[in-house]
Design a binder for these strands. Sequence first.
RNA 1: GCGGCUGUAGUUCAGUGGCAGAACGCUUGGUUGUGGCCCAAGAGGUCGUGGGUUCGAAACCCACCAGUCGCCCCA
Length: 424
Amino acid sequence: MRSYRAPKGMQDWTPDEQRYYRWIDETARAQVARYGFLPLTTPIVELTELFARGVGTGTDIVEKEMYSFETRGNEQLTIRPEFTAGMMRAYVEHGMHNLPQPVKLYAIGPLLRYERPGMGRYRQHTQLSVEAVGEDDPALDAELMTVAAEIFEALGIGQLRFLLNSIGCPACRPHYVNSVLVPWLEAQREHLGETDQMRLEKNPLRVLDTKDAKVRALLVDVPLLADYLCDDCRDHFDALRGYLDRLGRPYVVDPLLVRGFDYYTKTVFEVQSDALDTANNTLCGGGRYDGLIELLGGQPTPAIGFGLGFERARLVLEELEIVPPPLPETQLFALWFDDATKKRAFDTVAALRQAGFRAELAYARGKRSFKSQMRAADKSPAQFVLIFGERELAERAINVKEMSSGAQQRVPLDELTEWLRARL
RNA sequence: GCGGCUGUAGUUCAGUGGCAGAACGCUUGGUUGUGGCCCAAGAGGUCGUGGGUUCGAAACCCACCAGUCGCCCCA
């Protein structure tokens, strides 16, 4: 029989790896809570139409990366490829515009995208998504970028690059794209590679994001959106930079930074790490999406959010040799000699667990040498080994051995709990 | 989806046409009740999968699958 593997681009989180994800999860929750963000859990699937409309029919995600299916009831559903559309659907559905604004929400969970997997890119991956809805104050933009930074700092990850840009709004971007950028790019058309020519047709802004070195060189002269922003977008961007400067938070304005979702307006940002020398070095990406909620049938409502990838954060932690705090591990390990002492060990371990200790028993179907049991105890993380012998059985006591020192002491059973509490 | 590289034990890898290997890890034992070091024994592999070439394939050829690097795109 053939053995099974996890589906392509998907991975198990083994016990050894759990500590990374638990730590990232707990750290993220603690950091966003300091800013008043509250957890929101949405379904892992939504109507396909929600993503088509929200993310944009022209995007790669909607065009070729969604896990979509039809239910027995003929609903067209899609496993979420991102969080924002579903969270905004929930905002509208639950009338959260009636709450004090902004409504600050976060979600953590798996997303699925049918992509070609590689290091740092998986078909199923995990994100923290942080969204603040109902407010267009650039101070909020600054705070959102800051909380992202603080999550990484709390994890001990430094050496990050914060890239920032404004991609304008429906009042100014179309004019720039149609009347300035496209004509300029058309004039350079012969120098563009195949993919950049395609982008020029489909999504001209993305040509700015090219990895083609020749095109990048040309782009030093490209007219920048920054010079064509409307007053509102310019004021917003200037104010955001002012707030970031007040915080002393370093960032780089990258006038060529654009992002893949159709819904972004004004602020876009990315956090990259030099610790990852792959192409997938973006740890965190986000931006403002002031038009999305109206697009999904709600009142016109400004909003901003970002996504932070757990798998990539973990890769950086490993690369930097940052070891997460351990999960709760076994404190006590009980050994025995024969049937009678094993029963006493079994009972005592059960009682110790009831008392709140993490305790394990040496197992064997029948006999097992004491040495073998002691080796098992040595491999366990237990600090103390509880030894149940015939002599101790008679005296209603046990020997407690501290593994780090090898020191051993006889403790009456009645006093065991107290004795251990004083030491663990 | 396109192109390059790589798939041998749980892990890291050796083996380049002639018996499937090493190290580490794992299990058990090393005599009457004590771990780490050491010693011994053992378990664990359809050599990624399927086809082809050959007297003979882990090795050579093809396809597929998976991983990885780059592109596309993204966390």
